[in-house]
Design a protein around this nucleic acid. Structure first.
Lengths: 156, 156
DNA sequence: TTTAATTGATATCAATATAGTATCAGTTAA
DNA sequence: TTAACTGATACTATATTGATATCAATTAAA
């Protein structure tokens, strides 16, 4: 079960970059190269984020993308919703028959509660918070080689 | 974003039925009919649950499936893991390069925390608990038409 | 004014995951 | 002996995810 798809993952990374370079236009090419995100794929994501008013663009040479919203006003929950759709229990088959199945009823009730927990967590986590974490990490250790190693999954 | 796929959903429903009829063998056909689950699809799920020691089967006429584990010892988390794979942040690309990307590091750290929250919730929720909820609901109201209505999504 | 760097828009494709079906052999109660 | 079952496995269809390709429009700068 994948919590974040590539789309959401890439979008977050792009926003972290734009967030770090606020006030200037950054080209899709730059983001793509720096973060190793497939160029055309990324462009689609950026367009989508424009539509959702998270960023703005400038066309032409020296053009690019820039943050529009405050990073603190962009919860990961919103990105998940944009790129993966609303978090939902399971396909809502409840609409077909009104509570035809009692088991589904009970299941739904419990799972909706969990859904809320998840959504609350993803709501608290914003791009702004991640940027600050990132800055803090940069200040403390270099290359994730030392203290932060456990966060970095030094596998293989 | 779908939390539960059909596989997990059907598996839960099948287990609720087996849990309610403990000590007797229930055929795949019965479960399929009662819960409107595609027959052959269900059979695959049941086989999978045998492999994971959740249920046992008896072949031949009057055969079927029966709970093996205690319902309280089957957390939904386990079913999700069996049918949807372990809950994970995003495809673990961290293995490719050891922390090549600082942003991913930070993101991963935060998301792993959320992952734990989710897993904890799905761990607390067991088949046993759902069965008890189900019994309670059956005792209180009939057909989800009254007090429990809000749990039942009486849409359309 | 031309050109190269860029976004806007859209079409297409490939890979993977999800959902569902079909078939046949083996087992067992009646 | 037979009908009701499971075991095992192969197959198909559809949806989702991930990625690529193309061309027109815009703009800064040579």
């Amino acid at each position: 079960m994948k919590v974040l798809t590539k789309k959401t993952d890439y979008a977050i990374r792009a926003l972290l970059m734009l967030g770090a370079k606020r006030g200037e236009y950054v080209s899709a090419k730059t983001i793509s190269t720096d973060h190793d995100i497939p160029y055309q794929f990324l462009r689609g994501l950026l367009q989508e984020m424009i539509r959702h008013d998270l960023i703005v663009s400038k066309e032409g040479a020296q053009g690019g993308f820039m943050m529009k919203k405050e990073p603190d006003e962009i919860p990961i929950a919103q990105l998940i919703e944009i790129f993966q759709g609303k978090v939902q229990v399971s396909e809502c088959m409840f609409r077909k028959q009104i509570c035809a199945n009692r088991a589904r009823c009970v299941l739904r009730h419990e799972i909706m509660r969990i859904e809320q927990v998840v959504n609350h967590e993803f709501d608290k986590l914003t791009i702004g918070k991640l940027i600050r974490d990132l800055d803090a990490a940069n200040g403390v250790t270099q290359g994730c080689g030392e203290k932060k190693q456990e966060d970095c999954q030094p596998i293989i």
